[in-house]
Design a binder for these strands. Sequence first.
DNA 1: ATAGTTACAGAACAAAGTGTCAGATAACTT
DNA 2: AAGTTATCTGACACTTTGTTCTGTAACTAT
Lengths: 182, 182
Amino acid sequence: MDRRRKKTRNAIFTAFTALLEKKTYSALTVQDIIDEADIGRSTFYAHFETKDELLKALCKDIFDHVFPSEIMSEEKHDFSHHSSFSDRITHILYHIREKQQNIKGLFTGECGEIFMGCLKEYLFRVFDDRLTEDSPVPRSYRLDHAVSSFAETLRWWLREHSEYSPEQISSFYFASVPIPKD
Amino acid sequence: MDRRRKKTRNAIFTAFTALLEKKTYSALTVQDIIDEADIGRSTFYAHFETKDELLKALCKDIFDHVFPSEIMSEEKHDFSHHSSFSDRITHILYHIREKQQNIKGLFTGECGEIFMGCLKEYLFRVFDDRLTEDSPVPRSYRLDHAVSSFAETLRWWLREHSEYSPEQISSFYFASVPIPKD
DNA sequence: ATAGTTACAGAACAAAGTGTCAGATAACTT
DNA sequence: AAGTTATCTGACACTTTGTTCTGTAACTAT
């Protein structure tokens, strides 16, 4: 990828994240981003069709870091030789905390819907093979519940309770959701 | 309240809900609502300052119906003589299903954030006194988890699994969340 | 019933944002 | 060194926004 392209893309991401600390997502205009990133109008549209596409691209960037391929279900075979499921969850929590500053503003406000939606897509793949087989409750419900609960746990954590450690958060989660820890 | 005011307010609500089935919330303009409701421009602004305020008002209207005062925690004393907590939950589920058509579009898309936020405010009051006292997990987390899980349960139900009865949904919920049923 | 109040329609308005397009310059690739 | 690609500046028509004005119709209270 062209250096110039990388540089501009990054400038847009940085401006976007910075602005989200001052304004809400819906109040944020493309014009604001252009001014903050100090780029030409057409340059923005050369990178992203809309504000929503920009947000989605940013989410993907973040989650590709938070969920490295060895943590995803598909590759779990290598991983599970070394560690339990709750270890995988704790790993994810550490990665989330690293990106805390970028993520915080995305949980709240109107962009939360898109951000949480993207987060859940990744989580579905993490939790998909962790459900017990026999239950009177539909599998679809249990998977949705495990995923949604974890996503909301992250939101609760970063919103106002970041004093807890990743290990503590993990224990809170497994104490509240019927998912085996290993 | 003035008849004319009620009538116009209702026309706006109706137009708004109707439009949400064709367009997403963020793509919806005040102009669209004005045209659909067939009212003057200044009339809209005489009722609501912004699109968001309109949405919030609609949410309040819906939830004041879904959560009648006798179901809310404050008034539980009268209620609990006759029925268990899971009965109260089932009552809520019936009310939700009644308003299904109005609610469905509000769960998804960009307005979901505001809608879910409003829903949770009501739910916090319903669940506040239903938590067990002694637990190693912080009370704040357990309350947030119970509320979020229930809100997401409703979303799951109406999104793609409305074939289940309120009683079934209630049983799925209590099977997955550590909250006493009575 | 009459007088006073309140809500609405219609139209006009400036201000701001949107998305696109052309031409010029600079940075990159081979 | 030549060709490609990304960016920049400026401009464009268009839509949306929120406000203000005037006249008219509907309501309320005495």
